[in-house]
Structure formats: structure tokens, C-alpha cells
Design a protein around this nucleic acid. Structure first.
Lengths: 221, 221, 221, 221
DNA sequence: AATGAATGAGAGTTCATTCAT
DNA sequence: TATGAATGAACTCTCATTCAT
């Protein structure tokens, strides 16, 4: 599930030299500094100079530790994404019913959002804006594909065992992800908003949206 | 409803000179050129020079007709937004039931998306990226507030007349908008995707999510 | 002869807009400033900043008038080369004998050198150093090909009419050009050196080197 | 003859510590790596980082073994120059006549060129570009002075013993050197060119250019 | 003897904006 | 109204050099 690793920009060959401790620390420091800068200033206003300034280091240090601005941003995406997966996946696997898993998923993501606000904001900035040299989007919606497939599988399972009614699994997967993402965006703008209550409400929403209510609606698509 | 005009960057006082026809034509030309550029190159790669080049005019013309890059982008947002409202609102008002109105709304927006792909893409680019001089987001989620309130009103009406179950109207409104927006993004990335079928599926989804299924669930929040 | 035009980087299509007077003046000013900078500081120390500083203009002006540093340098080469050709060719055409033409050629070039020291120095700097994006030499010896062919034709004519002995025309052409170029370099380093006397001496040298001295040496290669 | 040592950047005082074997090996390794880099990428694209990368060592090693980039380049010049002298001088000394010595000289240099292409190319790159801190050429034509004097002596000898006609020995020396250098450059650009034939042709050329043809031309300048 | 890390200057380029014409 | 010209700041990236380990 969440097989994001398949999207990693470049697998490091085993024969490659291990990064030293200090090297790793610096990279982490720079990435964290970049994340905060993206969150605070937005993509267009985030320059290497500002990242370095916030980190209290020289501009050239970033160029020393990363091949370029692009590699830095790809590293951020990778780091943040891996963090999400590592947190959410274990919490889902405890559930037995499809409906239960969907609810657990949504609540887990909400919990993660509360504690990683800046990381997820930076992820969004980069996803929305990073482009390849020929100016086509680097990530875009296709970035969500592994998530979509995981959710599709969940829905199909629920349909097969009679929990869920018949519906288009892809549309449902896309919509769940959209609602979850927007929950985050809404909370960011309205920090007093109750994130956990929102998550529960969302779980209710999709429970109603998916459950097999009337006999004739039971899924067999 | 959709009282977006209240957000307009600057109301022109009534005593102000009316823009001439050619003035208005130039502004429209520039806005269209900018929209295409945003769509094709993304926010970060859209410069006044490129907009002018695409329009086949001199760079200075833009500065002449717009106070600056910021005003141009705000004008784009306004124009596009007004276009959506003008198209969607009449289609909703024909409906009598709340559920019917929701379905009509979603389908109308989908129809609009198909015919205004570049406009909506540009709107997204600007909404995601434009910031005030002190670097806080210019639009963000708050931009959706009028839409949220309209949808909230719809849901509340449905709850009051017994069509809808009890749920948090704000969360539902946010989620509907998120699902609709993501439908667009998904279609942009997958042009062969059936937009109208997706809209219908979404209407089903939210019909199930909102309808008063069991007596004890009838809304009175 | 001297058909350098065939090497021009890009022929301007007739439909292209004419550069304005002030545009042309600025380009000339920048080129002259660049030539002086190349002469004084050498290729490696010549930056756009220094060229602009010498010209008393902003750095961005150069970028405005030239596509980039590369185009500026190619323009310098073209301008200087055309200047040489325009000066030398008419002086050669007055001569009737091959030997006379060779002597006239060498003397004409020497005369040009005296009055265009900085231009020729800059030409040399760029020729020696400018490389394509893939790092291969942009000009190199191949740059001399039109000159070589012109001289070859001269020598062949002299051999055919019996003025010259038999020798390899290409080697002779290369050597004449080398001797002439080095005459310039020597004079640059030793400004008190008598350039005209050097040119006459060179003419003598190649007269002896080429003339048909003994009957059995007359050319028929 | 060829008293190039007088130009050495810094004579090591006798009391200085002898470089260890491994020290010498490292310096040689770095110099060879630098030579290849200069040849392949040209002066402007040759950085210490690239030299180190090619040598498979750390960038700091170069700074450890050489005072700076300048000293490295001066060492390259010295090494290459000494190599030429060591090869050419013995081959000249076998000759008895001045004409014979000139021919032997040219052929010897050509032979050396064939086997030391990268060395001579690097020498040229550095000679053409290296400057002192006040930006005046570090070598330039003056670098050839020992060669010029050696050739002048040869020509004067030939004139005194009646082999050669009267001509300006300095101009002849400069021209021979120019022709030889350009032979190399031409061969580099046209690798299929017959270097040895070119050398022979050059020897013929200067034999005709120098020899005492008519009695009244015999030298006594 | 060698390394990796860091610096600060300087490179070419792009940009929004201003202004005289 | 519209243009072309110019500015100055900010951008990413590369460089030679220094230094602690």
C-alpha cells in the first residue's frame, strides 16, 4: 500500500558512498529551513538565499549539499511523503471492516496534519508549482495515484463483502482524498477550527455515501 | 448569493471615467493572453514579458492598462469568477428540492469546466500563489467563503424541510467544493476521463451522504 | 574571396524588423566596450558586469540588446572580421602578379593591424576561448578556412603561370597566415617593433619561399 | 640555449626540503589530470573541482600540493616546456650545417607534437590565458624569447658561413616558430592531416626562404 | 597527507517597473 | 495609446580558497 517508493526520483545504488552524520544533519537542517520558508512565504518567494538566511548558513552551503534547487524540493517531497506513510499505514492495518479502515484512515491523517502543519503546507506548495525543465508539472494529480489505488482497493473490498453500495471506486477515492486535503487547508486558514471533529464528520459523510443502504443498491459493479 | 463582488480589489467610484471600448478590448486581450500563459507555464514561469509576447504587444502596454502585475492577476480572478457565477446560478434556481439543486449545481459546474479549462486553471494558479505585499496569501480558502455560505444555506434548507439528515453543514459544504474542484484537476490530468459521468457520480455520492435515511437521523442540529 | 559571410551565425530573414538607430548605436557601444575589456583584461576576466561598467551602463542593458554573452561575442567576431575583409580585399585586387598580390596582402593586413589593435586582440581572445555549450571550440582553426582557400587559390595560380615553384599550397597558406598573425602578436608585445618593416620582411620571406628559382623546381604538383 | 629555467616562477632554495616520492607522484598525477582537463574543456571551463574529479581525489588535495591555481598552471607550463626541450635539443645537436639543423629542429618538434598532443594543447591554453594578479598576460609572446634567440643564433651562423642569404633574423625566427605552432593547431583540428609531411614541407619552405640563392644576396647584415 | 565542509564573491540571466518619446 | 529602452534588484549556480579534523 502507499507504494510511493516507486516514484522516488533516483534509487541510490548500493555501491554509493554513505552520507556522513554531519552531512545528513545539514541536509535535514536545510530541508527543515526550506519547509518553514515555503510555509511562510509561499513558493514564489522562497529563494535559496532566504532558506540559507533562515538556517543561518551561507547560500553556497545549499548548493554544496544539494545538486540544485530542484533536488532540494524533490527531497522535501520525498521526506514529507515518507513521513505521512510511516504514520498512517500502521493505524489503518488494525481495522477489520472496510468502513472501519476508511474512518481510521481519515482520523489518522487528521492527527498527522495537526502535528505536521508546515511539512504538509510545503508539500502542497511544491506539488502545485514544481515543474520540469520543459515546464510541465512535475507532480500534479498523478502524484496521488498510489493513494487512489489504495483507496480503490479498499472500496472494492467493501463492495465485494456487501458493506458498501455500488459506486465508482475511482471517483470515490478521488473525492475522499479531496475532502481530506481540503480539511487541512480549511484548518490552516481557520486555526480555531476543530480538526478532529471535522475528521469525524468526514468519516460520517463517507460512511453514508458508501454504505449499502437499500438491498437493491448493494454493490456488484 | 455568491456575493463575490464584495471582495473586489477596488471599487471604481461612480464618478470615474468610463473605460473606452478599445481600452476594454485591450484589457480583455491581455487577460486572455495571461490566462493561457498561466495555464501553459504555471505561475512561477509567467512573466509580463511572456504574456506580452503571446499577445503580440509590447511589455509596456500591460503596465499601461494595469497598475501592475498584481492588479492584472486580481482582474483575472474577478473575471473568471464572475463568469462561473453567471453560468451556474441560473441553472440552480430552476430546481425546487434541495437535493435537486445540489445535483444541478454540480452538473452545471462540470459543464462550465469543460468549456473553460484554461480559465479555471489560471484561477487555480493565482489563487494558490498570489500573496499580499506582506507575503500572506491573497485568496486562499477564504476565497471560497461565499460559496461555502451558499451551500450551507442550501443544506440547512434541506435539513429543515426533512430532505437531509443531520450533519455539519460547513463540513459538507467544504467537502462538496473540494470534490468538485478535484474533479476538475483530475480531468485536466486525464483528459480522456468522463467529466459528466464523474459529476453524476459525485451527485450520487452527496445524495447518499446527505439524505435522511433513517428516522432517527433526521436533522435537527 | 574571404567568403566569411557563409559562417554568419544566423542570417536575418528579410521580414525581420529593422533595428532602430538608437538600438544600433547601443549595440555598437557595447561591442566597443567589450572589445576594450577583452583587450585589457583577457577573456577569463571579461564579465558582463565589467563591460557594462566600462560603458557606463547597467548590466541588464547588455542582456536587453543581446540574447546573451555568447551572442555578444559572436557579434564581435563577425563585426571585426567584416572590417578586416572590407579593408584588405580591395587592396589586393589591384595587383596583377601572384607574388605582387601576396605582398600587397601582407602589407595591407599589417596596415590594418596598426589601426585596429584592440579589435584584433579581442578577436583572438574570443577565437581562442569561445566554446559551444557542449564545450567544443566554437571557432578554432576552421575559422581560417576561407582565408586558407583564398591563399591556396593564389598560390595555385602562381604555380600554374610559372611564377611559383612546386609546393603544398595548403601548408604554404597555413604558414603565411601563421606568420602574419604572429607578426601582430609580436608587435603587440613589443610596441616599438617596426610593423611595416616586419611586413616587408615577411613578403621577402615568402617571395623566396615560393618563387620558381631553378628550372627543375617549377611547379606541377 | 633554451634557458627557460630563468623564467621559473620560483627557484627553490637549496636548503629546502626535498619533496618525498609520494609528494612528487601526487603532483604529477594532478598535473596530468589538469592537462587533460584543459585539453578537453578549455581554460575557462577548467576548475579545480573538475581537475580533482578527473583525478579521483578531493578538491583540497590540490590546494595542499600547490599554493593555488596559479602555481598549478605555472607548474604545468614548466613541466611541458622542459619536456619539449629535453626532446628537441639532442636531436638538433647532431647536425652540422645550419640548414640541416633547422630541418632537424622542425621535424623533431613535429615528432614531439604527435606524442604529446594534450600537453601542448594545455600549454597553449595556459599561455594564452594566464594573467598576473594585475591582469597583464603572464607569458605571452615573451615566453618565446629563448626560442627566438636560439633560432636567431642559428640563422646568424648560417648567414656568416654563407649558407643563408641576408634577412632579418628576428623576423625569420618569429615566423618559423609561428609556422611550427600553427602546424600543430592545424593537425589538432584535422587529425587526418599528415603531420610529418607538413613538417617536411615546412622545412622546404624555410630552406628556400633562407638559402643564399644569388651571389648578391649573400648575407652580411 | 588528505578530506569534507563552508565561505563569500562573482558569474549570467530574468524580472517588474519606470520613463521619454 | 503604445513603444522601446533602461534600471536595479533578485535569482540560481560556480568558483578558488580556507580550515578543522
Amino acid at each position: 500500500m502507499y507504494y510511493f517508493l516507486a516514484m522516488r526520483s533516483e534509487k541510490k545504488p548500493d555501491g554509493q558512498k554513505q552520507p556522513s552524520f554531519i552531512e545528513e544533519a545539514r541536509r535535514t537542517q536545510i530541508i527543515e529551513s526550506a519547509i518553514e520558508t515555503f510555509m511562510e512565504l509561499g513558493y514564489a518567494n522562497t529563494s535559496l538565499a532566504r532558506i540559507a538566511e533562515r538556517a543561518g548558513i551561507s547560500k553556497g552551503v545549499i548548493s554544496y549539499h544539494f545538486a540544485g534547487k530542484t533536488e532540494l524540493m524533490e527531497q522535501i517531497v520525498e521526506q514529507v511523503y515518507l513521513g505521512i506513510v510511516a504514520f498512517v499505514v500502521p493505524l489503518k492495518e488494525k481495522e477489520t471492516t472496510a468502513a472501519g479502515e476508511l474512518r481510521a484512515d481519515i482520523r489518522a491523517v487528521a492527527a498527522y496534519m495537526r502535528n505536521h502543519r508546515s511539512h504538509l503546507l510545503a508539500l502542497g506548495e511544491i506539488r502545485n508549482n514544481l515543474r520540469t525543465p520543459d515546464r510541465r508539472p512535475r507532480y500534479g494529480v498523478a502524484f496521488n495515484e498510489p493513494i487512489y489505488q489504495a483507496r480503490e482497493a479498499l472500496f472494492r473490498r467493501g463492495q465485494e463483502n456487501g458493506e458498501f453500495r455500488s459506486f465508482d471506486c475511482r471517483v470515490m477515492a478521488v473525492s475522499v482524498q479531496a475532502a481530506v486535503d481540503q480539511m487541512f487547508a480549511y484548518w490552516v486558514t481557520n486555526p480555531e477550527h476543530d480538526l478532529e471533529a471535522h475528521a469525524d464528520e468526514l468519516a460520517d459523510l463517507f460512511e453514508h455515501a458508501t454504505r449499502a443502504g437499500h438491498p437493491e443498491e448493494t454493490a456488484n459493479r
